[in-house]
Structures are given as C-alpha cells and as structure tokens.
Design a protein around this nucleic acid. Structure first.
Ligand code: FES
Ligand code: FES
Lengths: 144, 144
DNA sequence: AGCATTAAGGATAAACTTATCTTTTAATGC
DNA sequence: GCATTAAAAGATAAGTTTATCCTTAATGCT
C-alpha cells in the first residue's frame, strides 16, 4: 500500500508525537531504534518532513526532533502521506490509466474511488493528537 | 496502490476476457496496443498469468491468449492481484510492521484493516464475467 | 574561542522494479 | 519435412526505491 519511505515516515512521526508530550526532543538514533527502521534512511525522511513543516528539529547538544503543540493538533496522517507519497495515491487510477476521470472511467473506477476515498478520509481523520494519547501509547506498537 | 506489473496485468486480462466473448484468441501485439502498455513487459506478465492458469494461450499461427468459459466465470480480480502482488496487500501491516496482528497492533491497525478488507472484498466481487459484459465494454476504457 | 553533539546535505551503493532484446519452443499450413 | 507464426524463456539494460557513508552547518557547553 505505502512505500517504505512512507511507512518509516509515519512511524517516526507518530513516535515523535508521542514523545513530544513530555516536551523532550528526540534524536534520530532513539527514533530509529524505537520504530526499528534504518537510521540514515529515516534521517533523510525526517529531513524531508522537517522541510515541509510536519516536524521541527534543532541541531546541536540536546537537539533532535519534536512536534509543537500546534502541529500536534493540526497535522493528520494525510499530511504526512501527501508529502512522502505525493497525491497520486489520492487521485491516481487503480488500473494505472494516465488520468482517473469519471468521464472516461476504467472498469474499476466507480468501485475503486470508494476505496480510495475511504483511505483518504481515514488518514484525514487520524490526527497526531489522537495517536499521541496515553491510551494510544499503551495499546499500540510501532515495531514488532 | 498497485505495481505497474499488476496494473498492466489487470488491464490485459480484462481486455482478453472482453475479446474472449467472440471466441477469438488475441495476440500480445493487439493486447499491448489496446491497453497501451509496453509489449515485451506485458508478455512477461501474461506468461506468469498463464502459468498460474488465469489465462490460457497457444503458440503458432492463429495462436494467442484467451480465457475459457470456466475461468471467465470463476476468476475474480483478487485472483490476478494475488498472483502478481502476492498476498502482502491483503495481510500486510499498513505501517510496515513485519506482522499485522490484532494482539500487537500498530496505531493504524483497526482503521487500516477495514480499508484493506474493503479492497479485498471489492476485488473478490469483481468477476471477469462482469467485466466482459457488453455494458462494461461500451462504458469503460482500458487506456486514455 | 574551542570542543562536543546532533541534524542537514551530498555522494554513492545496493536492491528491486520496470522494460527491452534475443533465442528457443510449440503449433499450423503447405 | 519445411517455412511461418506466435508465445515461452533467458539475458540484459534502464530506472527507481531503499539504504549507507561522509562531510558540513548549527547549537550548546566549558
Ligand atoms: S479511471 Fe481508473 S480509477 Fe478512475
Ligand atoms: S498491525 Fe499495522 S495494520 Fe495490522
């Protein structure tokens, strides 16, 4: 469904959001360890997310990544997916036609856009705030 | 969502199914032309689908690909996706955990499996027979 | 100022997907 | 049998994703 980039990115941001509650910045080594992802690769992904203002970072001692209160409330998973996957996942044809278009639909179009819309809505409705709740932290896992 | 392999494969099989109504075999050149896909690559994909008994083929003059009456009735899109994508798309974790498991769920698990199940059901319920109906042939497009 | 720490940035490598080309095998008609 | 046709099979190339490594820039501490 998602690329590795997106999978690691989502896991990383969720983890940072969870740690952000304690107002601490968290380093790339700790993140990669917590979500069981390749460190350097994850760093690249977070770089991209930082540029796009999904997460914040500061360099130097006691530096690291964090998410401010405002982003915690405003960012949903679709924002992250948009940055890391582009919007083809939201607008592209299921059978790979160059244009997904109801005027000239592929045989799967009307069935497929339903799935696609549900995915989009699900990601839009899943906020970092929700994912960083105490219950979410205790009940769910970011590696196995 | 799907790989190029899967996209071309689905389009090719749908096209063959539609042509199969006239009891004609159809060659790889005609197929690639009809669905606007790279010919040699599409041939490889159909080779794989032939081995897995999704489509039939015969070599030589007037040879080509076809789908018999039985397959037309029994094959659904999920059979094709299964062969070309494996079942990770049906069983894999949305966040890329090695195991998707309700006992140790990722933060997206319960929302994600719903999407995944809907996709699976949609593909299971979409049969080649349906896609090769006259209405389907006239109303839908396999290239644009 | 100098040093230690940590993310950013750039270059490169490995792995996988996508795509093409050539040779071989099977079927058909003569 | 022989020529012709078309898919199967194998080899190789191109492109993209995934991953690592090394250098640079920013920050804080002494
Ligand atoms: S045209 Fe294929 S999904 Fe819309
Ligand atoms: S554990 Fe992630 S989707 Fe099931």
């Amino acid at each position: 469904m998602f690329s590795k980039t997106c999978e690691y990115g989502l896991r990383a941001v969720i983890y940072i959001a969870q740690q952000a509650k304690t107002n601490e910045k968290i380093g790339i080594t700790a993140i990669a360890d917590a979500i069981d992802s390749p460190q350097a690769f994850t760093a690249k992904i977070l770089q991209q997310l930082t540029k796009n203002n999904i997460v914040q970072s500061i360099k130097g001692p006691f530096g690291g990544f964090y998410i401010d209160e405002q982003n915690l409330q405003n960012i949903s998973l679709n924002n992250i997916v948009q940055v890391l996957e582009g919007n083809r996942i939201y607008t592209g044809c299921g059978l790979g036609l160059h244009q997904c278009n109801a005027e000239k639909p592929c045989p799967l179009h009307f069935k497929f856009i339903e799935i696609r819309e549900n995915l989009k809505k699900m990601l839009e409705n899943t906020t970092l705030l929700e994912l960083s709740s105490d219950k979410s932290i205790t009940d769910y896992y970011l590696k196995n």
